[in-house]
Design a protein around this nucleic acid. Structure first.
Lengths: 348, 348
DNA sequence: GGCCTCCCCGGGAGCGCTCCCGAAACAAAT
DNA sequence: ATTTGTTTCGGGAGCGCTCCCGGGGAGGCC
């Protein structure tokens, strides 16, 4: 298995030249004769030699590069935030590398290690945070003085953060439905490893509990963060007979789209029979019909702010203080929410 | 600007210890006394020292890692392909890093350099290919013996490739519309830097030219690859009075969704007034209404095959032959295409 | 008080590579 | 024939770090 790595000295020996000459050939210097070049190149090709550039520690410093760790490659949310990061990073001459943990803590840990082993300049991290997750790799980052910015709150970790007030946002969205007269509202919550999910669920519950009018809590269902999750959850919840919620607050827009599809298949109309509220305001929503009511999250701006914060931190050489930025959200009411049929007309 | 980088020797000097001790502290070895550890750590913190791990060239080899270079972070197409790459790579113990060129050749070049400077194990590349683009960085990869797999054809570059037959696919899609009786078809082509775009346009033209029935070529319009591009192009093309195409073949699904929105705003019905054909078959399409007719591209499988090919190449230590895989596509007819009004009901 | 541990720590070699500089080898100019 | 120049190559130092090993100091035991 573990072949001995072929080194530049090996090539030099086999080609009957010095290491310096091999180095010159590898780097395309013009200070080497054609005959020698060909001979050395042949040996290189034969051994399939590739210089371990890790060893080349002087000379041109690596281009500064920041890493972005996301949780779900398939959620356009991150692509939009990436857009913001890219615009700022590019302007500042930084490269951006993205890695997805796909919701797996061990993968996140491996990614962080990989990045630090590559002397990355800094990281923007969407951390995995399920109950008693081992966050040692994040603390490790602090110990190694690797600049990083979080885009999701981590309890007990003193670090820069760019986020929205998820509790308040979810609360506002739910309040709106309550004000519209909905009395049975269900919340399709996100994945357990996300603090965003937990916070949004908390906001929904807060709105539930503060509701003074007659209200039957239709509960919180653990759904997920993908299209299929919303679809499945809605088929299950609305497929059963009896009490049917009149509104659903979703963890995010993808879940909401899944719900809309399920409702359509179940023969329920949106918003006449069921109101659906999303979260995030993905770009694509503008292009759909019916348009989804949702909470607008300034993803692009969050990416920009995170990148700016990170670059400040990098260029201050770690002497910048951690900073916390909370960006405002906005309720976007479009076509997928309306007062419930019963409440719409009567009770003036 | 260019601060002198603080090295381990600096820390050792200021702490009054040896480099070895500093190294031990940095790596959390337990062979160092508490008092010394604290003192050294203090100096490290003060100077904000971070070991240049590039210099640590023995010991634990870096985790094998493959890079994926995409063209457009915001296109879910790549996210779905990434899904396939991730599943194979993860199973084989590889990490995946994604970088987006955002359609910019210089950025692509910088990314490739960055990756090779990091001793990446291999690359999956979606190359930028506009007319007489300078592809020297790709040839450079061959020279450096860096394994890589393309997922878009590059003329004149002998390398592994996983792709579909874009010409044939676009031709089939257009043929279908022709067979349905459409006589004025417009093609909204993709960005100029993409060979996929060029090939698909070629396929459309082929279908045009082979059509035996009376047919007015409504032309090829240069649109782009994003939602807004399709939206803009459709507003322009269908906003004008006079000859109105009865069908549009789009470069991809995003463009098609943009077109659908524009048509809706213009008061045109899909598919009654205009048929819209997409390309790619994004996951989200299943969740939309009306569902989009499109060409199903096996993105996930393409990602899997590309990753598998790449890993074979890596583990054969460069002695594997380049291989070309062409995967089949499938026409997915859903709700956005139909025979044109005139042809459907022959004027009763 | 002598001796043997054990624990810390420092000295120094070595990693694979690149750079600087000078030695050959040959050509051209005086 | 000597000088000057040019091209091509090798020797060797040095990069920042880690590992091995051996030396010294503190403490325990007789």
């Amino acid at each position: 298995m573990s072949q001995k790595p072929v080194t530049m000295a090996d090539i030099a020996r086999h080609a009957g030249v010095s290491k310096a000459t091999v180095s010159a050939v590898v780097n395309g210097k013009d200070s080497v004769g054609d005959e020698t070049r060909v001979r050395v190149q042949a040996v290189i090709d034969h051994f399939n030699y590739r210089p371990r550039s890790a060893a080349r520690l002087h000379g041109d410093a690596a281009r500064p590069c920041i890493g972005y760790i996301i949780k779900e490659a398939r959620n356009p949310y991150y692509a939009e935030a990436l857009d913001g990061i890219l615009s700022v990073a590019q302007a500042a001459g930084y490269l951006v590398e993205v890695a997805s943990s796909e919701g797996d803590l061990e993968r996140e840990r491996a990614i962080v290690e990989q990045f630090t082993a590559q002397d990355i300049s800094g990281l923007v991290i969407t951390p995995i945070l399920h109950e008693d997750a081992d966050l040692s790799h994040l603390f490790e980052l602090k110990r190694l003085n690797v600049p990083f910015v979080l885009v999701e709150r981590v309890r007990g970790l003193q670090a820069s953060l760019v986020d929205i007030d998820n509790v308040e946002a979810a609360r506002a969205a739910t309040r709106h439905l309550l004000a519209d007269g909905h009395r049975a509202i269900v919340h399709f919550a996100g994945p357990p490893y996300s603090s965003h999910s937990e916070e949004r669920a908390r906001g929904v519950r807060l709105a539930f509990s503060e509701s003074r009018r007659a209200f039957e809590d239709a509960g919180v269902v653990h759904a997920g963060d993908a299209l299929e999750d919303g679809y499945r959850a809605a088929l299950e919840r609305f497929g059963e007979a009896g009490d049917r919620p009149t509104a659903v607050v979703c963890y995010n827009d993808l879940v909401a789209l899944g719900v809309v599809r399920a409702l359509r298949e179940l023969g329920l109309r949106v918003p006449e029979d069921v109101s659906v509220m999303g979260f995030d305001d993905l770009d694509i929503l503008d292009y759909l019909s019916p348009a989804l009511s949702t909470v607008h999250v300034p993803k692009r701006e969050m990416g920009e702010r995170a990148a700016r914060l990170l670059i400040e931190q990098i260029e201050s050489r770690g002497h910048a203080q951690p900073e916390r930025i909370t960006l405002p959200v906005e309720l976007k009411l479009r076509g997928s929410t309306a007062p419930p049929a019963e409440a719409a007309s009567p009770t003036p």
